[in-house]
């Protein structure tokens, strides 16, 4: 047996596992998407496009798509702007606390999404930290609505994807080299000009990578839009869950899920091409 065959065998368990828990259910999802719902509301085995036609003729699907894209775009941009300086600092610091700081930065990843949402409720709610503080300072008289709407969902989502984006940025900073910034400064560029001409251009591949990841995570997020949206925020993920559980309409849920998956793959492909272009 050659060395490479032996190495290939090592991935076999992982491949089998993925086949069983990922590929097989996804195929099942595809199958369900082409089933129909009978008059009783029960699922009828079929190979028809009726469910698909229903889903895509509905204007609500279009609205959900726009909502999802807009929410993902805004939370990704916010998270990107906040994550970039953090990662840049972590990437460069020689501090002996670097490891600890990195763990703190990605800590939210280790906390359950539900717990995190309740944390945000305590901060952003009508009697939460922000409103109490603003009121006691006399900045506002009535509490601002910061949760159970798009604002809350955007804030919560941005925070929840930040750890992933920080990790992606750190992984993507390969080309960034302190010496290049020193070279720029020695050639007469101010620190700000050095950032614009050297640091930022060399971070673009990392930023593209992180943005792609953040966007995909936002598109598929369910807990945050559901709990922080207070039933007023409708996106593809919440709708899929509604259809699957409340309405037990499996074919519609499956069709929407496949549609979302297709959308994500398309966006990933675009971000990949963009990242590769930037690397050049």
């Amino acid at each position: 047996m050659t060395g490479s065959t032996r190495l290939n065998l090592l991935v076999l368990p992982a491949v089998l596992f993925l086949l069983a828990v990922y590929v097989w259910p996804t195929l099942g999802l595809f199958r369900n998407a082409f089933n129909e719902v009978g008059p009783t509301g029960a699922m009828v085995e079929a190979w028809s496009l009726k469910t698909g036609a229903e889903v895509f003729a509905d204007g609500f699907t279009f609205e959900l798509t726009l909502n999802s894209l807009w929410l993902s775009l805004t939370s990704t941009l916010i998270a990107l702007v906040l994550s970039y300086p953090v990662s840049l600092f972590l990437f460069r610091t020689n501090s002996r606390f670097r490891g600890l700081l990195a763990v703190i930065a990605i800590m939210p990843m280790l906390i359950s999404g539900v717990v995190r949402v309740f944390g945000w409720l305590a901060i952003l709610g009508d009697r939460g930290l922000v409103n109490t503080l603003a009121q006691s300072l006399g900045l506002i008289s009535t509490p601002m609505r910061l949760v159970f709407n798009w604002t809350g969902v955007t804030i919560g989502l941005a925070e929840s994807i930040m750890p992933y984006m920080i990790l992606a940025l750190l992984a993507g900073f390969g080309q960034l080299d302190r010496t290049l910034e020193e070279a720029s400064r020695s050639l007469g560029a101010t620190p700000f000009r050095t950032f614009l001409r050297v640091t930022l251009p060399l971070s673009l591949p990392a930023l593209a990578l992180a943005a792609g990841l953040g966007f995909v995570l936002s598109m598929s997020a369910y807990i945050t839009p559901k709990l922080l949206g207070g039933g007023r925020v409708f996106v593809l993920a919440t709708e899929i869950f509604e259809q699957a559980t409340t309405n037990t309409n499996w074919p519609v849920a499956a069709m929407l899920a496949i549609y979302t998956l297709g959308l994500l793959l398309l966006l990933l492909a675009i971000s990949n091409i963009a990242a590769r272009r930037l690397q050049r």
Binding site: Q175, D177, T179, L180, E182, A183, S184, V198, P201, L202
Partner: peptide
């Protein structure tokens, strides 16, 4: 610089 530090982009 020892590594030349040319701007790769």
């Amino acid at each position: 610089f020892q590594s030349y530090a040319l701007f790769p982009h």
